[in-house]
Design a protein around this nucleic acid. Structure first.
Lengths: 197, 197, 197, 197
DNA sequence: GATGAATGAGCTTTCATTCAT
DNA sequence: CATGAATGAAAGCTCATTCAT
C-alpha cells in the first residue's frame, strides 16, 4: 500500500517535519501537511498508512542522518579530534535540522514505549545511536584518553550537556551560532568545573 | 471563573498530572480527568477555564515545588554539600514526581513560546528556576569552589547531565534508585572525564 | 457508554428506521439520522456505540414486536383462527411498519453471518421467530389440522408466500390494503392450486 | 463511453458479481473489482460509466440468463413437467449462481425504484420475468391443470415458496443440494397443507 | 456549587472518479 | 486501449465546552 521513495514522499516528510516541530504531532492536521507539501490529502495515504507513519518516517529520516554522519566522524582522525567533531557536528546538525531536533528532544522519552511493529525501526535506530556513542567512549578509555570509568556515564554526561545547551539555545531565540559552544563544553567535560589548587 | 485552591482543585490537578504523563496532553480527555478526580465533568470548568489551564496548573505546581525545595537546600550548609544535595534532590524529586518530570522534560522546549497571558506564570517560574541555579553557580565561582567561567555554562552542563541521566533512567525501566548516580555525576562534573598524567 | 431507553433513544431509532428503509444502511449518514431525530450528531454516540449499533437496535425493535404479537395470537383461539390471524397480522404489521419490513426483507440473508457479539441478539431473536412458527405448524399436524409432513416445510412455504405477496405489494405501489390477500393465501396454502377432478 | 461486450467486460462483471455478493455493493471498492478482474482501475471506466453501472450489468446478466432458460423450459414438454422443471431450474440456478441470487434477493425490493434511465433495462427485464410466469400460470388454468383463480396469485405463491426455501438454504449453510426440495414444494403448492378427510 | 446530557466543529481516513502518460 | 497516481468530497466518530437542572 505504501509507495517507495519518490519526490512526493520526500515533500510530504519535509512538510510534516516542519509542521510537527512547530505545532506538535497532535495539533498538526493531515490537511495542513497536504497543503504544505502541495499534494492532495488523499495522496498522503498513498505513501503512508496513516498520520503516525508520517511521524515515524520523519524521525527515521533524522536519526539515520545523524547515525550516518557520526559514523563518518568516528571513522578517521585521532580521538580528541573525533570528540570535538562529534560535538560540533551535533551543533551543526541542530542548526540545519532545527525542526527535527525539536521533535527528537520531545520524543526521546517515548522511544522506549514504541512496541508495535511500526515503531521498531525507530527503536532500533535509537539503540544504534546509543551503542555508537558507548563504543566511542569505551575506546576513549581503552586508548588512554579518558579516565577509567563506565563509558555509558561519560556518554550520558556529554550527551546531556550537549542537548541541554541546545535546549537553551532553542528556547532563547537561537542568537548566534551555537557551534561556538564546542570548546566550552569540551573543556567542562574533560577537565571539570572544580577549581584546582 | 476560576476558583482558588480547594480540595477539588487539587484532586483535578493530581488526576490530570498522572493522565498527562501517561498519555500526553492531547490524548488525555477531560472526561478521564473528571473520572479520575471523582468530580463531574462540568465541575472541572468551575476551576479551570479550559483544558489547557489544567495543564498550566500542573506545570506550575511542579515547578513551584522544585523551586521551594532548591531554595531550602541553598539556604544552609556549605557549598559542596549544597551541590551534592541539589543533585540528590533532583533524583529524589523525579522518583517521587515521575509523572511531572516526564511532562516537564517534554514541555521545556515550549516554555519559551508561551506568550499568551495564561502562560506567563509558567515562564516566570521557569526563569526563577534558571536564575536560582545561575546564582548558585555564580556563588560557587565567587567563593572559590569552581573554576573561573560563565556560571550559566556550569549550570547548563550540570543540569544537562542530571536530566539526561534521568531520561536514561526513565526510558530503561527505572531499575534501582537513580539517587545512586549522584556521586558519578558529581565527579564527572567536578573533575572531568579526561585522564590526567 | 450507551444510555438506556429514553425518549431520545427512541427518536433516533425511529429516524434511523425511516432513513435506512429509504436509502439503505450505507447510504444513510449519521448526520441525516441526527437531523431527522432532531438531536446533535454527538448525541447519537451517547446512545449507540456506532452506526451499526443503531441498525441493530432498529432490527431488534421490529423483531421483538413481531415475536410478541405472534405469541399473543398463538396463545388463544382455535388453530384455524390462529392461522388466519397470523397471516392477517403479518399484513397489518407490514402496513404499520413498512420501513422495518423492507429492512427485514433485505437483511434476512445476513442474519446467519452475524457472528460478532453485537449481533447475537438479532440472531437469537430470529431463531426465536423461526422456532415459534415451527412449533405452530408442528401443533397443526399433531392436532390433525394439517397433513402429515415436516412442519418446517409448511412454515417455509407459508412464510414464503406471505413475504412474497408483501414484496409484490411494496414494489407495486402499495395500492389497496394488502390484508385482503389473507383469504387468497390461506386457500392456496391449505388446498393447493391443482384442479381437483 | 461504454464499450460493448468484450472479454474484459465479462471479467469485470464476474469479479464484481462475486464481490458484491460477498460484501455487498457499498463495501466493495472499485479497486477490489479491478484487482479481481485483473485489469487496471482506469480500465473499468472504459467499460462502465460508474460503479453503479457495473452493478446494473451484473443484475442484467443474471436476469437475462434466468429468462432465457425459463423460456426454453416453457417451450416444450407438457405442463406439469414444465412446472416441475421450472422449480428444479430455480434451484439449479441458485446453486450455480449463488452470488447472483443473493444480490437478486436483496435488490428485488429496489427494482421498482429504479427510475433513472440507466436502470430501465433492469426494470424491463424484471417485468419480462414477471409476465413470463404470469402467462405460464394463466396457461395452467386455461389448460385445466390449475384451479380457476388469479394466475398472479399462483405465481406469487410458488415464487414465494421457492425463494423462501432458497433463503433458508442459503442461511443455514447450504448443506446438501437444494434441488431435492422440488417435490416437497410441488406437492404443497399443488395439493395444499390441509388434512383431507 | 455541582453535574452530565447535549452539542457540533473538526479530525482522520476512504474511495469513486479523472486524466496524463 | 490501458493504466494507476492523484485527488477531494464525504463519511464516521471524538471530545472540549456549554448550560439547564
Amino acid at each position: 500500500m505504501e509507495k517507495v521513495n519518490t519526490e512526493k514522499r520526500v515533500e510530504i516528510i519535509e512538510a510534516a517535519l516542519q509542521l510537527f516541530s512547530e505545532r506538535g504531532f497532535e495539533k498538526t492536521t493531515v490537511d495542513e501537511i497536504a497543503n504544505k507539501a502541495n499534494v492532495g490529502k488523499g495522496t498522503i495515504y498513498l505513501y503512508f498508512k496513516n498520520k503516525e507513519q508520517i511521524f515515524m518516517a520523519v524521525i527515521e529520516e533524522g536519526l539515520s542522518k545523524m547515525i550516518t554522519h557520526l559514523n563518518q566522524i568516528f571513522s578517521h582522525g585521532n580521538y580528541m579530534t573525533q570528540l570535538r567533531e562529534m560535538i560540533t557536528y551535533h551543533f551543526k546538525f541542530v542548526e540545519e535540522n532545527k525542526d527535527f531536533y525539536k521533535i527528537f528532544l520531545k520524543e526521546r522519552l517515548n522511544f522506549c514505549f514504541y512496541d508495535n511493529p511500526s515503531k521498531t525501526k525507530i527503536v532500533e535506530l535509537h539503540h544504534q545511536l546509543y551503542r555508537l556513542l558507548e563504543e566511542f567512549f569505551h575506546n576513549g578509555i581503552k586508548e588512554g584518553y579518558l579516565r577509567l570509568g563506565n563509558p555509558n556515564y561519560y556518554s550520558l554526561s556529554l550527551s546531556g550537556m550537549i542537548s541541554h545547551f541546545i535546549v537553551h539555545w532553542l528556547t532563547t531565540g537561537e542568537t548566534e551560532s551555537i557551534t561556538s559552544m564546542t570548546d566550552t563544553i569540551l573543556e567542562i567535560f574533560l577537565t571539570g568545573a572544580q577549581k584546582t589548587k
